[in-house]
């Protein structure tokens, strides 16, 4: 964020190489469209693509928000109660081990083709990293800080809100950032299996019509969305945790 030049130069270089390849080897647009072909799609179907972007963004944000709320809550319970940890942790790991792509068709059977199965898919992919990072963060409070707050006669709530939770925040943000990059993927998986809208749906449709340029445009939008969400989160962290910059920079 401090220096835009290197990433911009890297992107420009990659696009140039791509363009050069399409021209030099005479690759037809339905195999690999050149950058101007993709740009042309934005001009032609701009409004349509924007609408589909909104659909995917809404699914992503809804599922993510639910995963943050539920993930943090479960993590607090895991970090607080031994029995919850022992009974819930193995279950969580087992659920996480199931490939999410395999669950997607079942979600369609249960919930149909609407927004809900996509939101649930996003939730499923985001939940685990958030729980793990939050629980780890909450359990890593240094012993001195615990003894300090005990010696100042702090109860559970005060100790949690003023010492343990703030101390866990940098660790929580690690999980939040991992989860946001998975969130968009989750939404697209949901849309691939069965949808009537969204950028994933656009990619499936354009594949059937051999409109590769449209698929590329949709992928570019997905990438941009992922990057934007990640950096919004990183900026939020930068703003909220100035004290943690030393360790996370």
């Amino acid at each position: 964020m401090r220096n835009w030049a290197p990433p911009l130069a890297g992107t420009a270089l990659a696009v140039a190489a791509w363009w050069l390849a399409t021209v030099a080897f005479g690759i037809p647009p339905y195999i690999l469209p050149a950058p101007p072909d993709v740009l042309a799609v934005f001009g032609e179907h701009g409004g349509y693509l924007l609408d589909q972007t909104w659909v995917t963004l809404a699914e992503t944000l809804l599922g993510y928000a639910l995963a943050v709320a539920a993930g943090v809550l479960i993590a607090v319970l895991i970090a607080t109660f031994r029995t919850v940890e022992q009974s819930v942790y193995p279950l969580l790991i087992a659920v996480n081990a199931v490939p999410k792509v395999a669950v997607a068709p079942i979600l369609v059977v249960w919930m149909g083709f609407g927004q809900l199965p996509k939101v649930v898919m996003v939730f499923l992919v985001c939940f685990f990293p958030i729980v793990i990072s939050t629980a780890t963060g909450l359990r890593s409070t240094p012993a001195e800080l615990i003894e300090l707050s005990r010696s100042l006669r702090a109860g559970w709530a005060r100790s949690f809100l003023q010492v343990r939770f703030p101390h866990a925040l940098p660790q929580i943000f690690v999980g939040l950032k991992v989860a946001i990059s998975l969130a968009v993927i989750g939404a697209v998986i949901g849309e691939f299996v069965g949808a009537e809208a969204g950028l994933g749906y656009v990619i499936v449709q354009s594949g059937a019509a051999a409109d590769t340029a449209l698929a590329f445009a949709a992928m570019a939008l997905l990438g941009a969305m992922s990057i934007a969400l990640f950096y919004i989160l990183a900026a939020l962290e930068h703003l909220l945790l100035p004290w943690a910059r030393e360790t996370t920079a």
Partner: peptide
């Protein structure tokens, strides 16, 4: 713990 007894550790144990 009593309010009139204070504690200091090897490390500063400040809230960052």
């Amino acid at each position: 713990p009593r309010p009139d007894v204070s504690l200091m550790f090897q490390r500063p144990a400040l809230l960052p």
